[in-house]
Amino acid sequence: MKKSMKKIEIGTAVSTAPGRVDGMLQVGCLPDGSPMEIPVIIVRGAEDGPVVWMHGCVHGNEYCGAFSIHSLVRELELQRGMVVALPVLNITGFQRQQRMSPFDGYNGGDLNRCFPGKPGGTLTEQMAFHIYQPLRQYATHFIDVHTAFTADTRWALYAPPSGDKAKVANGMARAFGFENTLPTPLDTLGGSALIEAAKEGIPGLIIEAGGIGSAFSPETVADCAERFRNVLRHLDMLPGETTEHGGLTLFSNFAWVNATRGGLFRPAVTCGSRIAKGDLVGRYYDVFGDLVEEAKSPFSGVVLAIGGGPVMPNGEILVHVGLDPQPAR
């Protein structure tokens, strides 16, 4: 006889039994009055257990995450617990191949700075609210999938960085196993789903895998999906041995370096490279092809992301550096 399970309802996705259900969650309303809806997938095991909430495309053009979540849930049979997957949060940014919603006319269009959201706020704040309510209600563990700029991006963050829940988050990070990982200080990334959830006692990860738009490979998608399965094995939601990916390199924090000039730009480093303060990270050229400046790193550390160019105005992210890399015990 089929066991009756607690009803889980997120938009039109309603789960009362083991297996998969799909539905849509309304997160806003478009100028023509039609609903702005995002896909929800619930995959449930036969026994109760952890609820892993996963979402992607918080930034609309970070498609690699949506593809890796899809790859995971396509053939997922859990022995216990539940995966709640929202592969495309910022659907209007997704449609237009841009980071933020084309319908948000105000500052604050970065959805990952708007959590927990506001029911009477801007478009993006209202979106964040509609997403965060069920997240807070159901999630015991959280995974947010992002990309940086270039296809070689591979790093992760976890939160909280200290306390009991930090052990859980660290365990998830080890099971995911990207070497370069930041235990994220709670005073950074305010308004991100990761930090807001961590402050409420929900441990989580951000995965940064692949680059913007089409800058990612099917291999990266398959690799991330397998690493997600390893996190689920670690949480005893899937059967099998947890793969040991090796020791992590942990940072004290990161530094985002914005470009202070514009021009044609070619990066000179790849993600994962160790750099020292003053090292070359890329070259600016003018419209005639003449070298006009060598961009140097103001920090020592590990390259987490590099501006891919080939053109940039001032203010774009030039390089993202992981600070004080230390091998984890």
Partner: peptide, 27 residues
Amino acid sequence: FDLHGHPAGDAHAPHPGIVLAIHPGPV
């Protein structure tokens, strides 16, 4: 693929020949 990740059909070559350009996706 659709938004839930379900296969939503294949695209086929309407002509034989050599691929000069192909859509990169992802959308």
